[in-house]
Each structure stands twice: as structure tokens, then as C-alpha cells.
Write a protein that binds this DNA or RNA. Structure first.
Lengths: 216, 216
DNA sequence: TAGATTGTTAATCGATTAACAATC
DNA sequence: TAGATTGTTAATCGATTAACAATC
């Protein structure tokens, strides 16, 4: 089963399954079905069953899936059955929001260091972390063997910082800068750009205030 | 050309084209080609030409695309050749970061109102906006005829706020809450959940610190 | 048992790519 | 003109769905 290459599009859905399972577990549910998951996620139940079947047989005919068990399996598959230590670069408003965000810790991640190049910010506390000088980034990240980083710096510094992160041994970057980063093979980048998401919706919005006035 | 339904996956790429074009324009370039765009975006040039051809003929054989012109066309298609007024709900750390973010204004969006239900935050300034009570949200948003909103509230309030936004006439929501929102047909939702993005990368990361020790 | 739901196959659907005539 | 690049078609590739035997 693990033998043939699993499509990235399948991998990309697994975190969504995990999130829905967590929700169900929080509601006290113990068992679910591909139909229930499908309804929550607005995809077909066949797709969910097929996705899961790449990795094993996690359900029981006639019953469905044990939520706790399926969570554990997906966490293992996605390698979030552990805690990844993450570096954060950028201690501006966005960096602060990320540093304070409570949602990382129980889903596999913890920010363990914050860097900035602004002397006014270096030394200040962000949550329970002291902001360190970006000049220590490379040696520091390498010494701690960090593999993941979040990038919350202005667009015009993003590539430069990305280069440093790669040099320091970072393998996965979550970038909030609205530019495409160039990185070597084997380094993974995901982007979050709120404007892109907003622009994906405006296409579908009618032009006029009174959209019930069809044709006018 | 506008007659047959355009696949959503095409629409989803247009903002990325727009972003790359903006970058090129900022660098002083005036003309580009599907090959150049493709290289930047790591997709095939044929795909770019095909995507654009859904909407018209924007290039010139032998020459390529006038960057400024293509930007204008894409902005028009995505309806971001205007400024959309956006409501922001949630004045916590994330809300603050969004309120201060400079990247909205020149890409079609402006936050014009901020709401929170925390008495300690109501009345405070967030950037140049005064935080208003969430109790005014519905009448306020409706009166201003706002069509878009950003949701930066804790997960356990997100659905409730989403319901209010829909009631107030909001047609598109960008949600930062890590849960699936249920909304009526005709209301569009996009999600930003950094943990999902992180979890999409860990699958590909080796387990061990010393990943050069193959097999051990 | 009867009912429900899985895992899986084959069919369908849709998206991407290769190729090239048109043409700037 | 010669070279370059578009817009578009047909072929390929990949993803989703429908259906159902297996089985809990």
C-alpha cells in the first residue's frame, strides 16, 4: 500500500479529515462514517474511502470508523503524532498573532524561537518567547536542528530570509509573504496570502448592490 | 467566450497570475510571455495560455503579453478593478494584524469596520478604525451594504458570527477559524488555517534529524 | 438475520499537456 | 524575412464517482 506513490492531492485532504475528526471527537462522538465526513466536508464519501484506502483499512463494514483510531492513524501518516518545533521569522503584528495563537500546540506544532531584524523589537517578549536578532538565525536554527519555519516578514525581505532558512537546514516553510519563493528541491513551501483568497471570491460576486434586479 | 462555464480551478489561478504580474510590473518589466509566467509559477505555459483563452485574446503572437494590459484585464475579470469594502470581525491579535496589513489596499480591498464582543476591546482603536460592538454588526453591515467579511474569532464563535454575517447580507467570507462553516448557497467561504498548511508538509519530511543516514 | 457501510473496481469526468497552424 | 509566441485542438493524463461484492 505504501508502495505506490500517493497523489499530493490526497495528502492535501488528510489535514481536513483530521480537523473534522477532531471536531467530532470534541463533540463526544466516538464513531463516524464516510457519509458523515463527506457531508461535513462537502465532498463525496467514495473519495474519502478511496483516500483512506491508500494507507490501509481503517473502517469496519456496516459500522464505519472509530474516530479516535482514525485520528491516530492520520496523525501518524501525516507525522503529526509528535510535536514539530517551528521557527518564526518576523515579530510584527502578524508574527505576534502567530506567536500567541493557541491552535498550534495540540495539532503537532510549537513555535520555539522568534527572529526579527528590527533593533526595537529584539529582546522584547512575544508571548513567552524573547525576540532574537535575525543575525543569529542561521546558526541558531541549525544548532537546534529545526526543520520548519513560518515566515511573517515583508515581501521584500522574504526571499532573503528564505535563503537563510534553507542554509540553516529548514525543510518546510509556511510563508505569509505574497510572493513566490525560490527554494531548492526537497524544501517545501506553502503560502498564505489572504488577498488571493479574497480575489478567488469576488469573481463570483454580482456587481450591483441589488443583485435581485436581474438584468439591470 | 463568457458563454460556457469557467472551471473554478481556472478562477483560482487568476489571482496568482495577477500577483506575479504585479511583481514583474514593480520590477519595471513591460512585457512578458506565458513561458516566463510559467517559470515563476511552476506550472506549464500551455496551461496559462489556456486559462487566459477562456476570457479573451490578451497576447500577441511572437511578442507575448503587455503586463499592464493583462493586469487590467485580470483585475476586471476578478472584479478587483474597484475597491471592496470589507468587514472584520474579531479584534484579537489576528484581527489587529489584519487591520494593520498594508497589502489589501492596492489589491482591491479595504477594511472599513471592525467588530468584537469583548467590552475591553470595544471603543479601542485598531489602526485607524474604532472597534465596534458585535451587537451592531448586523444592522451596521446591512446599512453599509458590505458584501465581504473576514472572520478572526475563536472557533467556537465562528459559526454564530457567520450566521450573523449572512443575515446582514454578506456574500463572501474569509475565515481564519479552523472549522467548516455552514452557509446558504450563494455565500462563498474561503478558509485560512495555518495548521492545515503545516500538516500538508510534514508528510514529506523525513523522520530523523540526520536524514542523510539513509535507512537508519 | 437484515441493514449498513466499507474497500475496491471500472467507468466517467475533467484537467493538463503536447503540438502546431496562425501570425505578429 | 526569420524567429518567437500565441490561441487552440486533440491526446493524454489523472482524479472523481458510481456501483457493488464483501462483511461486520
Amino acid at each position: 500500500m505504501r508502495s505506490k506513490k500517493i497523489p499530493d492531492i490526497v495528502i492535501r485532504r488528510l489535514p481536513l479529515y483530521l480537523r473534522t475528526l477532531a471536531r467530532m471527537a470534541a463533540e463526544g462522538k466516538e464513531i463516524t462514517s464516510s457519509d458523515q465526513l463527506a457531508e461535513q466536508l462537502r465532498i463525496s464519501s467514495a473519495l474519502i474511502r478511496k483516500d483512506l484506502s491508500y494507507f490501509g483499512e481503517f473502517g469496519k463494514q456496516g459500522t464505519g470508523y472509530q474516530i479516535r483510531f482514525l485520528q491516530e492513524q492520520l496523525q501518524r501518516i501525516l507525522k503529526v503524532d509528535r510535536e514539530w518545533e517551528v521557527a518564526l521569522v518576523g515579530a510584527g503584528n502578524l508574527g505576534r498573532a502567530l506567536a500567541h495563537y493557541k491552535g498550534f500546540c495540540n495539532r503537532g506544532f510549537r513555535i520555539v524561537a522568534v527572529y526579527d531584524n528590527d533593533p526595537a523589537k529584539i529582546g522584547k517578549m512575544l508571548g513567552n518567547l524573547k525576540v532574537k536578532s535575525a543575525s543569529h538565525l542561521v546558526e541558531d536554527v541549525r544548532a537546534r536542528r529545526l526543520k520548519m519555519a513560518m515566515l511573517a516578514v515583508p515581501a521584500d525581505h522574504a526571499q532573503e530570509v528564505a535563503d537563510q532558512l534553507v542554509e540553516a537546514g529548514i525543510r518546510a516553510v509556511l510563508s505569509y509573504a505574497p510572493i513566490h519563493l525560490t527554494v531548492p528541491d526537497g524544501v517545501y513551501v506553502q503560502y498564505i496570502d489572504p488577498v488571493v483568497h479574497l480575489q478567488r471570491m469576488t469573481y463570483y460576486l454580482g456587481n450591483r448592490k441589488h443583485s435581485n434586479l436581474k438584468g439591470f
